[in-house]
């Protein structure tokens, strides 16, 4: 992947190229589970791309193990999950554990339909950040960037 960009992993082609930056952060984006609402995730993919990050877009119907495999293969710096299925309290912590068990110190950022009162529980379970509905492009980019910085301690 010499030029980065949002990569379509099924077809293996580069569709979009980001602006060049000194260190290109690599983010895996996925829908975890059965939920098919992918509008938000696609918009986030383009927002992160426009900010200079490299997006590995897994798309729909991913499992914790398919995401762990992508993080390993792509040497990713963060995982972004989008959840609109009200399954976040089960699946969010499960994702964090799966990365831990694989020995990957990679922050997980979750966006989508997350009630405010669930945010604390997700953060306590090791999720790095939660982005609510209506988060701005700047907030999206900053939360991913600072999650990566924090994980590098």
């Amino acid at each position: 992947m010499p030029f980065g960009g949002v990569r379509d992993i099924y077809r293996g082609g580069n569709r979009l190229s980001p602006a060049q930056t000194p260190e290109r952060l690599r983010v895996v984006l996925a829908k975890l589970g059965l939920d098919g609402h992918d509008r938000g995730l696609k918009v986030v993919a383009r927002i992160l791309r426009d900010s200079g990050m490299e997006v590995i877009f897994l798309g729909l119907r991913q499992t914790t193990s398919s995401i762990v495999a992508a993080v390993e293969q792509e040497d990713a710096d963060a995982v972004g999950l989008s959840m609109h299925n009200a399954g976040h309290l089960t699946l969010g912590p499960k994702m964090v554990r799966a990365l831990d068990e694989a020995g990957l110190d990679v922050p997980v950022v979750i966006g989508g339909i997350i009630p405010p009162e669930d945010e604390r529980q997700l953060l306590d379970a090791g999720v790095a950040a939660v982005l609510g509905p209506g988060a701005s492009a700047t907030e999206v980019v900053e939360s991913v960037r600072s999650a990566i910085v924090a994980s590098r301690g």
Binding site: G33, L91, K94
Partner: peptide, 22 residues
């Protein structure tokens, strides 16, 4: 719910966390 919409039973591994949710 999502498992029903996708043709999965509640006891499928795909259904974890999504049974009766949406």
């Amino acid at each position: 719910d999502m498992p029903t919409l996708m043709g999965h039973d509640s006891d499928s591994e795909w259904s974890e966390g999504e049974v009766g949710r949406a």
